[in-house]
């Protein structure tokens, strides 16, 4: 386990993502989180929204993107905004399941085994570069993500509520990594691909960094980082999140919307370029995530915009293009866009 920041190379062409910023005042919960995160993070509104969707639906989030685009900062800021416990695990090849889950340790004072809880016992776990860990570790984490409990020794321990895993992986530099199989990818509610900030946003990032001062440690000093600038004063609490989750449960999903979701998922199973279509979990994820997005946008019902906004994050990691399609240079995003257009 490590708390070091990853230093992977950049993506050559990260996918672009529209900045869907709802009107201020549409959802007080979302506005509070956004304003809190906005103090330290410039832009990345969509990522913040995806994190909130994952929180509100109890799903898990897989972030793909180059290093240095504030993944950790965003997650930590969100955790601070809602007063959530936060842990970060840097996945490496030699990581063991017990490093994450915890283990039984013999207490020499009492000569009894006691439970040492791993970093998974938190509200918000950032699993950095999850594809660098061995499949055994990945499976252990994903099982915990699914069941929301872990077994240590003979005892099963429930994970705290809320519990959210935000995993990251580098889409390039696949050497020495263990790609997550589709079955395990399916357990992530959303996979979001980071995009670079715009020039204006990047300028503001640099401008803010110039305002950071030194952090004194005894006689020594280290420059402050953006993490030091995170506002520790939480504006929301877990009960606020619970209330928001309850409100999400009340968001209405029409038959028409359900039909659109199901049709898209079915299309992935019929498309000639797709070897492996989406599981029913994709339809569930699409509907639940859309409901959360509708709540964040201050609506009491889902609309097709939610469906179209989340389709890429929900569908792409759940389908696999055929060899023939890959051979002719087809991309998953193109195939998905084609399916969405065929719907409309």
């Amino acid at each position: 386990m490590s708390t070091e920041k990853t230093t992977n190379n950049n993506l050559s062409s990260p996918p672009t993502q529209p900045a869907t910023i709802p009107a201020v005042g549409a959802c007080p919960f979302a506005d509070t989180v956004r304003s809190h995160v906005g103090k330290t993070v410039v832009g990345q509104q969509v990522v913040v929204e995806r994190v909130m969707i994952a929180l509100l639906t109890g799903g898990h989030l897989l972030l793909e993107g180059v290093p240095g685009i504030a993944k950790t900062l965003i997650v930590q800021s969100v955790a601070k905004a809602i007063d959530l416990k936060f842990s970060r695990v840097q996945f490496t090849i030699d990581l063991l399941p017990s490093d994450i889950l915890g283990s039984e340790i013999l207490d020499q004072k009492t000569s009894e085994f006691r439970i040492h809880r791993g970093p998974i016992f938190t509200n918000l776990l950032l699993a950095d570069e999850i594809n660098r860990a061995s499949p055994k570790v990945q499976s252990a984490l994903l099982e915990a993500m699914q069941e929301r409990k872990v077994s240590i020794g003979d005892t099963s321990h429930a994970l705290p509520a809320p519990f959210l895993v935000i995993a990251t992986q580098n889409p390039i530099e696949q050497s020495g990594t263990f790609e997550l199989p589709e079955a395990q990818l399916d357990r992530f509610l959303l996979r979001h691909r980071f995009s670079y900030p715009s020039a204006e946003e990047e300028t503001e990032v640099v401008r803010r960094s110039l305002k950071l001062k030194l952090k004194m440690q005894g006689d020594g000093a280290v420059p402050m980082t953006a993490f030091d600038a995170i506002d520790d004063g939480a504006k929301l609490h877990i009960r606020d999140l619970s209330q928001a989750m309850a409100a999400v449960q009340n968001v209405h999903v029409s038959e028409v919307f359900l039909r659109d979701c199901i049709e898209l998922v079915h299309l992935t199973r019929k498309h000639p370029d797709i070897e492996l279509g989406c599981s029913p979990r994709a339809a569930l994820a699409l509907v639940h995530a859309s409901r959360a997005r509708a709540f964040l946008h201050g609506r009491e019902y889902t609309i097709p915009e939610d469906f179209f906004a989340l389709a890429e994050d929900v569908i792409l990691h759940r389908m696999r293009l055929s060899y023939e399609a890959l051979a002719i240079g087809r991309k998953s995003t193109d195939v998905l866009t084609e399916m969405l257009r065929s719907l409309s």
Partner: peptide, 14 residues
């Protein structure tokens, strides 16, 4: 707006 991603097109239409 057909050349835009569907979600961007819908956002603009709304």
């Amino acid at each position: 707006l057909a050349s835009l991603p569907p979600v961007q097109a819908i956002e603009q239409l709304r």
